[in-house]
């Protein structure tokens, strides 16, 4: 494992910790899209179905369990916690699941490398992860006074994707037979989706102003 991959995973983990701290610490999920969180849970479930059949390393197994556990907890808090669920901006979080899930499913069926249930679902998870942030970005545009934790959460998630691209570039040059067109294309698309957000994030940071995305 190279330093970019490890740093990417740590950013991913940190983003989830920041989100959980926000939700449980201030008992509020204001500005957080439940749709994005549920899509991520679906991404992890469909991708990690091989958790007990394809052992890679203790690190991988532990991280998979942590991602499954924490994303389940986030969805649980937002849907069922007596206090936290009251802070969810349901009326604003209107992105349609089907708009993202259906194309991902069709593309997975059309392009899967091997037609086994595990492989098709794994391919589906790659497509879905690329676009799962969209409900969150739309909700951010609609949210007045985005708090720091929410802005940092999305920033850390975007950093994770950017670092994975560096990891792929590194692996491309250091490993033979590392040709991952599907994963690369989806990863680049996913990172491009964050570009607009990054621009306004850095602008607000530079000017020492509160983050706001123009509608």
């Amino acid at each position: 494992m190279n330093v970019f991959r490890l740093a990417g995973d740590m950013m991913h983990l940190l983003s989830i910790v920041v989100l959980l701290l926000k939700i449980t610490g201030i008992k509020s999920c204001r500005g957080i899209s439940l749709k994005t969180q549920e899509l991520y849970l679906l991404v992890f479930i469909t991708r990690y179905l091989d958790i007990f059949t394809n052992f890679v390393s203790l690190y991988n197994t532990v991280m998979k369990l942590v991602f499954l556990g924490t994303s389940s907890a986030i969805v649980y808090y937002m849907r069922y916690d007596r206090i936290i669920k009251l802070t969810y901006d349901k009326e604003q979080d209107t992105f349609k699941y089907l708009l993202l899930v259906a194309p991902s499913a069709v593309l997975a069926l059309a392009t899967s490398h091997v037609y086994t249930v595990l492989e098709v679902l794994w391919t589906f998870s790659i497509y879905l992860e690329a676009v799962a942030i969209m409900p969150q970005l739309v909700l951010l545009q609609r949210t007045q006074n985005i708090d720091n934790l929410t802005g940092n959460y999305v920033f850390l998630l975007g950093s994770y994707r950017g670092l994975y691209i560096l990891n792929w570039i590194y692996r491309f040059f250091t490993e033979k037979h590392y040709r991952q067109w599907l994963v690369w294309t989806c990863g680049v698309v996913q990172t491009i989706i964050y570009c607009d957000f990054f621009y306004y994030y850095f602008l607000s940071w530079q000017n020492n102003e509160k983050l706001a995305l123009p509608a």
Binding site: R5, D9, H12, D50, N54, V56, S57, N60, M63, K64, F67, H113, E119, W122, T123, Y164, N167, R171, E175, H177, Y178, R179, Q180, W181, L182, V183
Partner: peptide, 10 residues
């Protein structure tokens, strides 16, 4: 083949 090597990523 395609996909295989990425199975060691998260």
């Amino acid at each position: 083949g395609s996909g295989k090597a990425s199975k060691d990523e998260l």
